[in-house]
Amino acid sequence: MIKLENLQKNYKNFGLNLSLEVPSGAVIGLVGKNGAGKSTTIKAILGLIKPDGGTISVFGKDPKDFTCADKENIGVALSDSGFSLVLKTKDVVEILAGFYHDFDKETFIAKCEENGLAMDKTIKDYSTGMKAKLRVLTALSHKAKLLVLDEPTAGLDVLARGEILDLIRKYLEEDSERSILISSHISSDLEGLCDEIYMIDDGKLVLHEDTDVIMGKYGIIKVGTEEYEKLDKQYLIATKKEAFGYTCLTNEKQYYLDNYPNIVIENNDIDNMIILMLGGK
C-alpha cells in the first residue's frame, strides 16, 4: 500500500532519510522521540509536504498525483489538526457525507452516540478524549483501505484507549486488505496491534523488526558491574549504565537464558527498547 524509498526531507536543523513499507493487510507502527520525523513521514505520505528526494508510492501513486478518489480511500487522524472547533457533531456528519461516497452515516452516528459525542455538541466543548475519538471515528467512517493514524490515542485514559483499539481491530476484521500506519508514544497500544515496528531517531531508521520478535526474541538483561565484565557481549545491541550496574538489550534472549541461568533476564517491550536504544549512553 505504501512504499517509501529513501524518502528525504530537509528542514533547517533536521534531515529525514527513510525507507518504509506498509504491505496490504498489515499494521505498521512508527515510534520515536518527538521531533524524530514521525509526523514529517506521515505528512509526506499524505501529500501535505513535498519530499526533497527519494520516492513515495501510495496505492502505486506519488501522493502529489492524488485525486479526490484516491483520498477517499485513505482514512486519516492527525494529532494536531482536525475539524474547525465551531462545528457541531451533526455538522461533521453532513460534511463527511458530502466528502465521501462510502461514508457510513448510520454507523458513524451510532458510534458517536455510543462514545458520548452528542450530535448537538460543539467540538470546542469536547474533552481531549472526545476529540481523539472523533478523529478516529472519522478515519474509520468511510471504508478506507488505508488508515494513517498519528497519535490516535494521545491523551486518553487506558479504558478509552482500549475502546479505540477495539474499534480499529474490528475495522481490520471487516476487510483483510485494510492496512494501517500508526505512530504512537503509547507502546502498549502498538504491541497489541502492530505487525512490524519502525523506530526512527533524528530522521534515520534505527530499527525495523516484527513485533513478535521484539517481544519474544529480544530480552532485557540486568547485571551488576562484575557480571557485566564476564558477560558475552556479542548479542547485546544496547547497554545503559545504571546505579546497580548495567541494563542491556539483546536480540537473542534464549542464548542468555540458556548460558546464564542465574542472571536477571526480562521480557522486552517497546518502551524499554526505546529507552535503551534511543536514550543517551
Binding site: 499524505l46 501535505l48 479526490c68 486519516v76 492527525l78 489538526s81 474547525s84 472547533l85
Partner: peptide
Amino acid sequence: SLDQFDNGMAFMFTLPVTKKL
C-alpha cells in the same frame, strides 16, 4: 481564516480535496 485556524489546513487536505478544488 476559520479553515486556517489551529492548523486546520493540514487535516483539510487529507480529505478528498485537491488544492485546485
